[in-house]
Design a protein around this nucleic acid. Structure first.
Lengths: 207, 207
DNA sequence: CCCGATCCTGAGCAAGCGCTTAGAGGTAAG
DNA sequence: CTTACCTCTAAGCGCTTGCTCAGGATCGGG
């Protein structure tokens, strides 16, 4: 609904987009795409939310699809960075999996507007752009698989189907973007805490 | 992609839709909506897939949205029936949760075309239709919550946040519709088996 | 003052959209 | 045969879509 959630933070989300007018358009597009979906959003709506005329959009972006591509690319880069730095960090596999799930879930809840576009509008991308993004997703999958695999090797986890479990863990986290509501009763931190606990139970070695 | 997956089964999925021409249109709409999304699908495309002229659609359905509503209603009815009959069946909470997850996941995998429309095109429904459907979803949530709650009461499960865990279980199952691919390496049964195991670990009492 | 560069608007084009209408073709009762 | 009904099509209406283009406003350097 509002753009408030995107306008700050420890990491100034869209700072790589310049000039400022282009950033305003992009943030407006994130809101609109998340609210109604890519195909149901008109360029007039995006421009209107950014306080500009429809033609202004085409000074900064060649097409409506380029807007989606830039959003998707930046979002996937951020999500992948979160996962890989958790996977390659220090600590036991248990600690790293806990951290990865916590960070990934927090991002999907806190930035659920962006995440919704990133996770559910993949099919609207042009062929070449989609293949680029799919490669980023493959690396996300690999990061989670790596943590779980190392946990099994270290005897911390008991998992018979590592790829399947990694898929389920990612799937669980991603779906947060679909149901999370900022007005709801849970904060992003609480959801991260809950989910990290559930995931650790899914992989925990017997006892 | 194809309509093959929808054209049979133990329960003849769209048998309640008559006459046959209307059913053909509806099945075509399911395929098209699942493939490109509701808004990106044209009435000309739906009619074309069903081998009819664009105008034929309007003899059987008043609007494009009515098609989506009927698909969504029938799909949600089926999903809810699966969950409630598992929840109210016989056996321990463990057995019932296992059965519920298995059946719900199987449905999302086997009928992933339908499920994708049912789960991800809610926002495209008219206000009155969406509130009707949301009520069905509330009952799905209640069914899962009931099983888990009873398992906790019986000492079979150890769950501190019952609503949160029920939400996560449903979320995990629903997201199968997003990633499941019929050409992939896993059968619906295998996914059901894997997921039922993971869910039981999530709620299992210590040891 | 003029200059070019940058950013934006008003007006609008071609194409495609959801949906309607007039009427054709087939079937079956009277 | 006529008549009524149901199913479907050909044609197209009114509107919205993504996008374009000629030109206006603003600014810093000469």
């Amino acid at each position: 609904m509002s753009t408030a959630e995107e306008t700050d933070g420890e990491n100034t989300p869209w700072s790589e987009v310049t000039p400022e007018a282009a950033r305003r358009l992009l943030v407006a597009a994130v809101d609109a795409f998340a609210e109604r979906g890519y195909h149901a959003t008109t360029t007039r709506d995006i421009a209107g939310r950014a306080g500009m005329s429809p033609a202004a959009l085409y000074i900064h972006f060649k097409t409506k699809e380029e807007l989606l591509h830039r959003i998707s690319r930046i979002g996937h880069d951020r999500a992948l960075t979160l996962l890989e730095s958790a996977a390659d960090g220090e600590g036991s596999a248990t600690e790293r999996l806990d951290g990865a799930v916590r960070a990934f879930v927090r991002w999907h809840a806190e930035r659920h507007t962006t995440a919704r576009v990133v996770q559910y509008e993949l099919d609207a991308l042009a062929e070449e752009h989609r293949t680029e993004i799919v490669e980023l997703r493959r690396r996300s999958d690999a990061a989670v698989r790596r943590i779980i695999g190392e946990g099994v090797a270290a005897g911390e986890f008991d998992v018979s189907d590592v790829p399947g479990t990694a898929l389920a863990v990612l799937s669980l986290c991603i779906d947060v973007a679909r149901w999370f509501n900022a007005q709801g009763s849970r904060t992003p931190d609480e959801v991260g805490e809950l989910y990290a606990g559930l995931v650790l139970r899914m992989v925990a070695a017997g006892r």
